[in-house]
Write a protein that binds this DNA or RNA. Sequence first.
DNA 1: AGCATTCCTAGTAGCATAGTAGGTTTTCTT
DNA 2: AAGAAAACCTACTATGCTACTAGGAATGCT
Lengths: 152, 152
Amino acid sequence: MKISTKGRYGVAAMYDLAMHYGEGPISLKSIAQRQKISENYLEQLMSTLRNAGYVKSIRGAQGGYSLSKEPEKISVGDIIRTMEGPIVLVDCLLTDAEDNDYCERAEICVTRGVWAKVCDSISSVLDSISLADLCQEEQLQGDVCDNGKNLF
Amino acid sequence: MKISTKGRYGVAAMYDLAMHYGEGPISLKSIAQRQKISENYLEQLMSTLRNAGYVKSIRGAQGGYSLSKEPEKISVGDIIRTMEGPIVLVDCLLTDAEDNDYCERAEICVTRGVWAKVCDSISSVLDSISLADLCQEEQLQGDVCDNGKNLF
DNA sequence: AGCATTCCTAGTAGCATAGTAGGTTTTCTT
DNA sequence: AAGAAAACCTACTATGCTACTAGGAATGCT
Protein backbone atom coordinates (compact mmCIF):
# COMPACT_ATOMS: atom_id res chain seq x y z
CA MET A 1 0.00 0.00 0.00
CA LYS A 2 2.17 2.81 -1.30
CA ILE A 3 1.64 6.00 -3.22
CA SER A 4 3.53 5.75 -6.49
CA THR A 5 5.97 8.37 -7.72
CA LYS A 6 3.31 9.40 -10.20
CA GLY A 7 1.15 10.57 -7.35
CA ARG A 8 3.96 12.04 -5.31
CA TYR A 9 5.63 13.80 -8.21
CA GLY A 10 2.27 15.00 -9.44
CA VAL A 11 1.53 16.64 -6.11
CA ALA A 12 5.05 18.06 -5.89
CA ALA A 13 4.82 19.57 -9.36
CA MET A 14 1.39 21.02 -8.71
CA TYR A 15 2.59 22.44 -5.43
CA ASP A 16 5.49 24.02 -7.29
CA LEU A 17 3.08 25.60 -9.74
CA ALA A 18 0.90 26.81 -6.87
CA MET A 19 3.91 28.49 -5.29
CA HIS A 20 4.38 30.38 -8.54
CA TYR A 21 0.72 30.99 -9.23
CA GLY A 22 0.16 34.20 -11.16
CA GLU A 23 3.73 34.45 -12.39
CA GLY A 24 3.03 33.27 -15.93
CA PRO A 25 4.20 30.01 -17.45
CA ILE A 26 6.71 27.98 -15.48
CA SER A 27 9.04 25.78 -17.48
CA LEU A 28 9.05 22.07 -16.89
CA LYS A 29 12.82 22.24 -16.61
CA SER A 30 12.70 24.53 -13.61
CA ILE A 31 10.02 22.46 -11.88
CA ALA A 32 12.04 19.30 -12.47
CA GLN A 33 15.14 20.94 -11.02
CA ARG A 34 13.45 22.31 -7.92
CA GLN A 35 11.55 19.09 -7.22
CA LYS A 36 14.40 16.84 -8.31
CA ILE A 37 12.38 14.86 -10.81
CA SER A 38 13.57 13.49 -14.13
CA GLU A 39 12.61 15.99 -16.81
CA ASN A 40 11.47 13.43 -19.33
CA TYR A 41 9.44 11.58 -16.79
CA LEU A 42 7.81 14.69 -15.40
CA GLU A 43 6.84 15.60 -18.93
CA GLN A 44 4.63 12.53 -19.10
CA LEU A 45 3.05 13.34 -15.78
CA MET A 46 2.32 16.92 -16.78
CA SER A 47 0.65 15.60 -19.89
CA THR A 48 -1.71 13.61 -17.69
CA LEU A 49 -2.46 16.65 -15.56
CA ARG A 50 -3.06 18.76 -18.66
CA ASN A 51 -5.50 16.24 -20.12
CA ALA A 52 -7.34 16.24 -16.80
CA GLY A 53 -7.66 20.02 -17.04
CA TYR A 54 -5.66 20.98 -13.97
CA VAL A 55 -2.83 22.72 -15.80
CA LYS A 56 -2.58 24.61 -19.04
CA SER A 57 0.54 24.85 -21.15
CA ILE A 58 2.10 27.37 -23.49
CA ARG A 59 4.45 26.07 -26.16
CA GLY A 60 7.55 27.66 -27.60
CA ALA A 61 10.36 29.62 -26.01
CA GLN A 62 9.40 31.19 -22.67
CA GLY A 63 6.53 28.76 -22.55
CA GLY A 64 5.67 26.48 -19.68
CA TYR A 65 2.89 25.33 -17.41
CA SER A 66 0.51 27.04 -15.06
CA LEU A 67 -2.47 26.04 -12.95
CA SER A 68 -5.77 26.34 -14.75
CA LYS A 69 -7.64 27.10 -11.49
CA GLU A 70 -6.79 28.88 -8.27
CA PRO A 71 -4.76 26.82 -5.79
CA GLU A 72 -7.77 26.88 -3.46
CA LYS A 73 -9.81 24.95 -5.99
CA ILE A 74 -7.44 22.03 -6.52
CA SER A 75 -7.17 19.41 -3.83
CA VAL A 76 -4.48 16.83 -3.28
CA GLY A 77 -7.23 14.25 -3.83
CA ASP A 78 -7.90 15.65 -7.29
CA ILE A 79 -4.26 15.21 -8.18
CA ILE A 80 -3.88 11.73 -6.71
CA ARG A 81 -6.99 10.52 -8.50
CA THR A 82 -5.72 11.95 -11.75
CA MET A 83 -2.30 10.37 -11.42
CA GLU A 84 -3.19 7.04 -9.85
CA GLY A 85 -6.80 6.44 -10.77
CA PRO A 86 -9.71 6.12 -8.38
CA ILE A 87 -8.96 5.65 -4.71
CA VAL A 88 -10.15 2.09 -4.25
CA LEU A 89 -8.08 -0.27 -2.18
CA VAL A 90 -9.71 -3.32 -3.71
CA ASP A 91 -11.16 -3.69 -7.17
CA CYS A 92 -14.55 -4.96 -6.03
CA LEU A 93 -15.28 -1.48 -4.68
CA LEU A 94 -15.25 -0.22 -8.25
CA THR A 95 -18.47 -2.05 -9.01
CA ASP A 96 -21.81 -0.54 -8.27
CA ALA A 97 -23.00 -1.06 -4.70
CA GLU A 98 -26.30 -2.38 -6.13
CA ASP A 99 -24.47 -5.07 -8.02
CA ASN A 100 -24.88 -8.17 -5.93
CA ASP A 101 -22.65 -10.38 -8.05
CA TYR A 102 -19.96 -10.26 -5.43
CA CYS A 103 -22.20 -11.50 -2.66
CA GLU A 104 -22.05 -15.22 -3.34
CA ARG A 105 -19.82 -15.31 -0.29
CA ALA A 106 -20.95 -13.28 2.69
CA GLU A 107 -17.35 -13.17 3.87
CA ILE A 108 -16.38 -10.93 1.02
CA CYS A 109 -19.14 -8.51 1.91
CA VAL A 110 -17.85 -8.28 5.44
CA THR A 111 -14.27 -7.43 4.53
CA ARG A 112 -15.51 -5.24 1.73
CA GLY A 113 -17.04 -2.97 4.35
CA VAL A 114 -13.62 -2.54 5.91
CA TRP A 115 -11.96 -1.47 2.68
CA ALA A 116 -14.83 0.89 1.92
CA LYS A 117 -14.40 2.60 5.26
CA VAL A 118 -10.66 3.00 4.71
CA CYS A 119 -11.18 4.41 1.23
CA ASP A 120 -13.68 6.93 2.52
CA SER A 121 -11.25 7.96 5.18
CA ILE A 122 -8.38 8.40 2.73
CA SER A 123 -10.54 10.36 0.34
CA SER A 124 -11.80 12.73 2.96
CA VAL A 125 -8.29 13.56 4.12
CA LEU A 126 -6.96 14.07 0.60
CA ASP A 127 -9.96 16.07 -0.50
CA SER A 128 -9.69 18.36 2.49
CA ILE A 129 -6.21 19.61 1.59
CA SER A 130 -5.87 22.12 -1.23
CA LEU A 131 -2.74 23.37 -2.94
CA ALA A 132 -3.35 26.68 -1.20
CA ASP A 133 -3.17 24.89 2.14
CA LEU A 134 0.20 23.46 1.19
CA CYS A 135 1.51 26.86 0.22
CA GLN A 136 0.36 28.33 3.49
CA GLU A 137 2.03 25.54 5.41
CA GLU A 138 5.26 26.36 3.62
CA GLN A 139 5.03 29.98 4.73
CA LEU A 140 4.24 29.07 8.31
CA GLN A 141 7.24 26.89 8.75
CA GLY A 142 9.70 29.35 7.34
CA ASP A 143 13.16 27.83 7.14
CA VAL A 144 12.57 25.42 10.01
CA CYS A 145 11.20 22.10 8.93
CA ASP A 146 8.40 20.72 11.05
CA ASN A 147 7.59 17.76 8.85
CA GLY A 148 4.11 19.03 8.32
CA LYS A 149 3.10 19.02 11.96
CA ASN A 150 1.39 22.37 11.51
CA LEU A 151 -0.83 21.10 8.74
CA PHE A 152 -4.23 22.11 10.16
CA MET B 1 -2.62 2.52 -3.99
CA LYS B 2 -4.05 -0.95 -3.58
CA ILE B 3 -4.16 -3.57 -0.89
CA SER B 4 -2.40 -6.67 -2.17
CA THR B 5 -3.90 -10.12 -2.08
CA LYS B 6 -1.56 -10.87 0.78
CA GLY B 7 -3.41 -8.38 2.91
CA ARG B 8 -6.85 -9.30 1.65
CA TYR B 9 -6.34 -13.03 1.85
CA GLY B 10 -4.73 -12.62 5.24
CA VAL B 11 -7.78 -10.83 6.60
CA ALA B 12 -10.12 -13.31 4.91
CA ALA B 13 -8.30 -16.27 6.42
CA MET B 14 -8.17 -14.71 9.87
CA TYR B 15 -11.84 -13.89 9.63
CA ASP B 16 -12.49 -17.49 8.71
CA LEU B 17 -10.57 -18.64 11.77
CA ALA B 18 -12.46 -16.17 13.93
CA MET B 19 -15.77 -17.58 12.70
CA HIS B 20 -14.58 -20.98 13.90
CA TYR B 21 -12.93 -19.77 17.07
CA GLY B 22 -13.01 -22.40 19.80
CA GLU B 23 -13.70 -25.28 17.42
CA GLY B 24 -10.18 -26.67 17.48
CA PRO B 25 -7.72 -26.65 14.58
CA ILE B 26 -9.11 -25.66 11.19
CA SER B 27 -7.37 -27.14 8.18
CA LEU B 28 -5.81 -24.87 5.63
CA LYS B 29 -7.61 -26.80 2.94
CA SER B 30 -11.03 -25.90 4.32
CA ILE B 31 -10.09 -22.25 4.73
CA ALA B 32 -8.78 -22.12 1.19
CA GLN B 33 -11.97 -23.67 -0.13
CA ARG B 34 -14.32 -21.38 1.76
CA GLN B 35 -12.33 -18.26 0.95
CA LYS B 36 -11.45 -19.38 -2.59
CA ILE B 37 -7.71 -18.95 -2.19
CA SER B 38 -5.00 -21.14 -3.68
CA GLU B 39 -3.99 -23.67 -1.07
CA ASN B 40 -0.27 -23.43 -1.68
CA TYR B 41 -0.34 -19.67 -1.66
CA LEU B 42 -2.40 -19.44 1.48
CA GLU B 43 0.11 -21.73 3.13
CA GLN B 44 2.78 -19.10 2.74
CA LEU B 45 0.52 -16.44 4.14
CA MET B 46 -0.38 -18.55 7.16
CA SER B 47 3.29 -19.05 7.80
CA THR B 48 3.71 -15.28 8.00
CA LEU B 49 0.78 -14.99 10.40
CA ARG B 50 2.16 -17.81 12.51
CA ASN B 51 5.59 -16.20 12.76
CA ALA B 52 3.90 -12.99 13.83
CA GLY B 53 2.15 -14.88 16.61
CA TYR B 54 -1.44 -14.40 15.50
CA VAL B 55 -2.17 -18.04 14.74
CA LYS B 56 -0.91 -21.30 16.10
CA SER B 57 -0.74 -24.52 14.16
CA ILE B 58 -1.01 -28.20 14.87
CA ARG B 59 0.69 -30.57 12.49
CA GLY B 60 -0.31 -34.00 11.34
CA ALA B 61 -3.67 -35.47 10.46
CA GLN B 62 -6.62 -33.56 11.94
CA GLY B 63 -4.22 -30.68 12.44
CA GLY B 64 -4.77 -27.13 11.32
CA TYR B 65 -4.71 -23.54 12.41
CA SER B 66 -6.41 -21.55 15.11
CA LEU B 67 -6.24 -18.02 16.43
CA SER B 68 -3.74 -17.59 19.23
CA LYS B 69 -5.78 -14.78 20.83
CA GLU B 70 -9.46 -14.01 21.10
CA PRO B 71 -11.01 -12.37 18.03
CA GLU B 72 -11.54 -9.22 20.09
CA LYS B 73 -7.80 -8.81 20.51
CA ILE B 74 -6.77 -8.99 16.87
CA SER B 75 -7.45 -5.99 14.66
CA VAL B 76 -7.53 -5.77 10.91
CA GLY B 77 -4.62 -3.34 11.26
CA ASP B 78 -2.56 -6.01 12.99
CA ILE B 79 -3.13 -8.36 10.10
CA ILE B 80 -2.48 -5.83 7.35
CA ARG B 81 0.75 -4.70 8.99
CA THR B 82 1.85 -8.31 9.31
CA MET B 83 1.09 -9.13 5.70
CA GLU B 84 2.09 -5.91 3.98
CA GLY B 85 4.55 -4.28 6.33
CA PRO B 86 4.15 -0.93 8.05
CA ILE B 87 1.39 1.36 6.85
CA VAL B 88 3.46 4.10 5.29
CA LEU B 89 2.38 5.57 1.99
CA VAL B 90 5.84 6.98 1.28
CA ASP B 91 9.17 5.61 2.41
CA CYS B 92 10.39 8.85 3.94
CA LEU B 93 7.82 8.38 6.71
CA LEU B 94 9.76 5.33 7.84
CA THR B 95 12.63 7.45 9.08
CA ASP B 96 12.56 8.93 12.52
CA ALA B 97 10.71 12.23 12.74
CA GLU B 98 13.77 13.71 14.43
CA ASP B 99 15.91 12.85 11.46
CA ASN B 100 16.17 16.06 9.50
CA ASP B 101 18.06 14.57 6.57
CA TYR B 102 15.01 14.81 4.39
CA CYS B 103 14.50 18.50 4.94
CA GLU B 104 16.96 19.88 2.40
CA ARG B 105 13.87 20.79 0.42
CA ALA B 106 11.02 22.37 2.35
CA GLU B 107 8.65 21.15 -0.37
CA ILE B 108 9.19 17.57 0.68
CA CYS B 109 8.35 18.47 4.23
CA VAL B 110 5.10 20.02 3.13
CA THR B 111 3.86 17.05 1.14
CA ARG B 112 5.24 14.72 3.77
CA GLY B 113 2.71 16.17 6.17
CA VAL B 114 -0.07 15.16 3.82
CA TRP B 115 1.06 11.54 3.61
CA ALA B 116 1.50 11.39 7.37
CA LYS B 117 -2.07 12.53 7.90
CA VAL B 118 -3.40 9.95 5.48
CA CYS B 119 -1.39 7.17 7.10
CA ASP B 120 -2.71 8.11 10.52
CA SER B 121 -6.22 8.07 9.20
CA ILE B 122 -5.81 4.64 7.59
CA SER B 123 -4.23 3.23 10.72
CA SER B 124 -6.94 4.47 13.00
CA VAL B 125 -9.67 2.91 10.86
CA LEU B 126 -7.89 -0.43 10.54
CA ASP B 127 -6.97 -0.56 14.20
CA SER B 128 -10.52 0.16 15.26
CA ILE B 129 -11.92 -2.97 13.60
CA SER B 130 -11.36 -6.32 15.29
CA LEU B 131 -12.05 -9.79 13.99
CA ALA B 132 -14.87 -9.97 16.48
CA ASP B 133 -16.43 -6.91 14.85
CA LEU B 134 -16.31 -8.66 11.50
CA CYS B 135 -17.97 -11.76 12.91
CA GLN B 136 -20.70 -9.67 14.45
CA GLU B 137 -21.28 -7.88 11.18
CA GLU B 138 -21.70 -11.26 9.52
CA GLN B 139 -24.38 -12.23 12.01
CA LEU B 140 -26.23 -8.94 11.68
CA GLN B 141 -26.58 -9.18 7.96
CA GLY B 142 -27.89 -12.72 7.95
CA ASP B 143 -28.37 -13.95 4.40
CA VAL B 144 -28.92 -10.48 2.98
CA CYS B 145 -25.77 -8.81 1.82
CA ASP B 146 -25.45 -5.17 2.72
CA ASN B 147 -21.88 -4.75 1.56
CA GLY B 148 -20.76 -3.81 5.02
CA LYS B 149 -23.05 -0.82 5.40
CA ASN B 150 -23.85 -1.85 8.94
CA LEU B 151 -20.23 -1.85 9.99
CA PHE B 152 -20.49 0.36 13.10
C1' DA C 1 1.63 -48.48 7.85
C1' DG C 2 -0.88 -45.05 5.63
C1' DC C 3 -2.77 -40.83 5.14
C1' DA C 4 -3.69 -36.09 6.24
C1' DT C 5 -1.73 -32.28 7.25
C1' DT C 6 1.73 -28.58 8.18
C1' DC C 7 6.29 -26.92 6.82
C1' DC C 8 9.87 -25.37 3.68
C1' DT C 9 12.30 -23.89 -0.51
C1' DA C 10 12.76 -22.81 -5.13
C1' DG C 11 11.10 -21.42 -9.19
C1' DT C 12 8.30 -18.33 -12.71
C1' DA C 13 4.93 -15.71 -15.71
C1' DG C 14 3.03 -11.47 -15.97
C1' DC C 15 2.56 -6.83 -14.92
C1' DA C 16 3.44 -2.22 -13.24
C1' DT C 17 6.67 1.25 -12.12
C1' DA C 18 9.94 4.44 -13.18
C1' DG C 19 12.20 5.78 -15.99
C1' DT C 20 15.37 6.70 -20.81
C1' DA C 21 15.75 8.14 -25.52
C1' DG C 22 15.02 10.66 -29.36
C1' DG C 23 12.53 12.94 -32.51
C1' DT C 24 8.61 16.71 -33.92
C1' DT C 25 6.27 20.96 -33.46
C1' DT C 26 5.56 25.52 -31.79
C1' DT C 27 6.88 30.14 -30.65
C1' DC C 28 9.81 33.65 -28.75
C1' DT C 29 14.03 36.36 -29.38
C1' DT C 30 17.59 38.33 -31.98
C1' DA D 1 15.13 34.40 -41.15
C1' DA D 2 17.80 31.77 -37.95
C1' DG D 3 18.31 29.77 -33.78
C1' DA D 4 17.07 28.44 -29.46
C1' DA D 5 13.83 27.19 -26.00
C1' DA D 6 10.32 25.03 -24.87
C1' DA D 7 6.16 21.73 -25.07
C1' DC D 8 4.61 17.45 -27.32
C1' DC D 9 4.68 12.58 -28.60
C1' DT D 10 5.95 7.72 -29.04
C1' DA D 11 8.53 3.82 -28.29
C1' DC D 12 11.53 1.17 -25.66
C1' DT D 13 13.49 -1.07 -21.25
C1' DA D 14 15.35 -2.52 -16.76
C1' DT D 15 13.93 -3.73 -12.42
C1' DG D 16 11.17 -5.42 -9.00
C1' DC D 17 7.02 -7.10 -7.13
C1' DT D 18 2.90 -9.95 -7.06
C1' DA D 19 0.68 -14.01 -7.12
C1' DC D 20 1.14 -17.73 -7.68
C1' DT D 21 2.90 -23.16 -8.91
C1' DA D 22 5.55 -27.20 -7.76
C1' DG D 23 7.27 -30.61 -5.12
C1' DG D 24 9.33 -32.63 -1.46
C1' DA D 25 10.19 -33.27 3.87
C1' DA D 26 8.51 -33.65 8.46
C1' DT D 27 4.91 -34.67 11.68
C1' DG D 28 1.34 -37.02 13.94
C1' DC D 29 -3.49 -39.10 14.02
C1' DT D 30 -6.04 -43.51 12.99
